[in-house]
Amino acid sequence: MPKIHSHAHSARDLHVPEARDCPSPQDGKVDVGARLRFLREGRQLSIRALAEASGLAVNTLSLIENGKTSPSVSTLQQVAVALGVPITSFFEPDSPRSRVVYMPASQRRSTNLPHGMLSDLGAGLAQRTIEPLLITLDPGAGSGSHAIVHPGQEFVFCLEGRIQYTVDGAIYVLEPGDSLIFESTLPHGWENLEASPARALLVLCP
């Protein structure tokens, strides 16, 4: 089984992002459903039109928008592609306002996945060219039943546990300190096969 081994600004320049364009998060949690509705309506798309563009069921999108279900990463990616936005658009407001972002761990925003959690580490940065994410996977959790495909490149650095990545049919098992980088147009996905949580730094480069 193949494996990758790896062994001063002024105060006004620092910015901790605040949601202003859609409902504010409570206790650091992001309402992905409300954010999805905000983005869809901003593009004057009906939920049926978005379903057709994304390949998802109308009922699935409705459940997400109403907070009845937590979308998988692969589902979020499908919707992001259909809307023409980066996946991080579901976690931060429009109109980034700063060239420097300082984000204390206590103020980090996160969203629940079906079996884990995702945090956007770059929220509030202007002219973003990278999308840094912190992903936490519960035992047995993964990116979803469908392979993910999107433009750009993807970098992953395992922080805790063991994560199995599948990229274009090849399997890579990452342990703490291991990293993987690949063209994200290749079908890919990940899964935590262990009985304990796993965490990884995920950097998307559209």
Score class of each variant (00 low, 15 high):
residue 93 P to G: 13
residue 188 H to V: 04
residue 14 L to C: 10
residue 144 G to E: 00
residue 203 V to F: 01
residue 165 Y to W: 14
residue 150 H to N: 07
residue 20 R to G: 05
residue 201 L to M: 10
residue 81 V to L: 14
residue 90 F to D: 01
residue 124 G to I: 05
residue 186 L to P: 01
residue 57 A to I: 00
residue 90 F to V: 05
residue 2 P to D: 11
residue 100 V to N: 11
residue 143 S to G: 04
residue 183 E to A: 14
residue 26 Q to R: 14
residue 68 K to G: 09
residue 36 L to E: 11
residue 134 L to F: 05
residue 118 L to N: 12
residue 186 L to G: 10
residue 151 P to T: 09
residue 149 V to S: 10
residue 75 T to P: 03
residue 168 D to Q: 13
residue 199 R to T: 02
residue 89 S to P: 04
residue 53 A to D: 11
residue 159 L to H: 05
residue 93 P to Y: 01
residue 90 F to K: 10
residue 205 C to V: 07
residue 189 G to N: 04
residue 15 H to N: 04
residue 106 S to N: 11
residue 138 D to H: 02
residue 169 G to D: 08
residue 21 D to E: 12
residue 123 A to V: 02
residue 51 A to G: 11
residue 125 L to G: 01
residue 126 A to V: 09
residue 166 T to M: 06
residue 163 I to A: 10
residue 200 A to Q: 14
residue 79 V to H: 07
residue 99 R to Y: 12
residue 190 W to M: 15
residue 153 Q to M: 07
residue 34 A to V: 07
residue 67 G to L: 06
residue 97 R to I: 09
residue 195 A to V: 09
residue 64 I to R: 11
residue 137 L to S: 05
residue 126 A to G: 07
residue 83 L to A: 03
residue 85 V to Y: 05
residue 144 G to R: 00
residue 147 A to M: 03
residue 31 D to H: 13
residue 73 V to H: 09
residue 117 M to D: 12
residue 201 L to N: 08
residue 23 P to L: 13
residue 204 L to N: 12
residue 46 S to E: 03
residue 131 E to K: 03
residue 124 G to Y: 03
residue 94 D to C: 09
residue 160 E to Q: 15
residue 124 G to Q: 04
residue 160 E to A: 08
residue 83 L to V: 07
residue 27 D to A: 14
residue 92 E to L: 01
residue 166 T to K: 08
residue 102 Y to S: 11
residue 4 I to C: 10
residue 204 L to Q: 11
residue 192 N to S: 00
residue 123 A to H: 03
residue 182 F to G: 07
residue 47 I to N: 04
residue 105 A to W: 08
residue 97 R to S: 14
residue 141 A to V: 03
residue 139 P to Y: 02
residue 175 E to M: 06
residue 172 Y to K: 09
residue 16 V to K: 06
residue 132 P to T: 02
residue 173 V to H: 15
residue 88 T to I: 09
residue 132 P to Y: 01
residue 95 S to L: 09
residue 23 P to A: 15
residue 206 P to W: 02
residue 101 V to T: 06
residue 172 Y to E: 14
residue 154 E to C: 04
residue 113 L to K: 02
residue 44 Q to N: 14
residue 171 I to A: 11
residue 109 R to I: 10
residue 32 V to M: 02
residue 123 A to M: 04
residue 51 A to M: 04
residue 112 N to E: 13
residue 109 R to F: 13
residue 118 L to P: 04
residue 66 N to Q: 15
residue 29 K to M: 14
residue 137 L to G: 03
residue 83 L to S: 04
residue 20 R to C: 00
residue 156 V to K: 08
residue 2 P to W: 09
residue 51 A to Q: 07
residue 201 L to I: 12
residue 164 Q to R: 14
residue 99 R to I: 00
residue 190 W to C: 11
residue 193 L to D: 08
residue 38 F to T: 12
residue 90 F to I: 06
residue 118 L to V: 15
residue 4 I to Y: 10
residue 84 G to W: 01
residue 198 A to M: 01
residue 118 L to W: 07
residue 125 L to P: 02
residue 191 E to C: 15
residue 190 W to H: 15
residue 26 Q to P: 00
residue 188 H to K: 02
residue 25 P to N: 06
residue 136 T to A: 12
residue 11 A to S: 10
residue 184 S to A: 07
residue 101 V to Q: 00
residue 114 P to M: 05
residue 141 A to E: 02
residue 4 I to T: 15
residue 188 H to I: 04
residue 139 P to M: 00
residue 3 K to C: 08
residue 109 R to N: 08
residue 60 T to A: 10
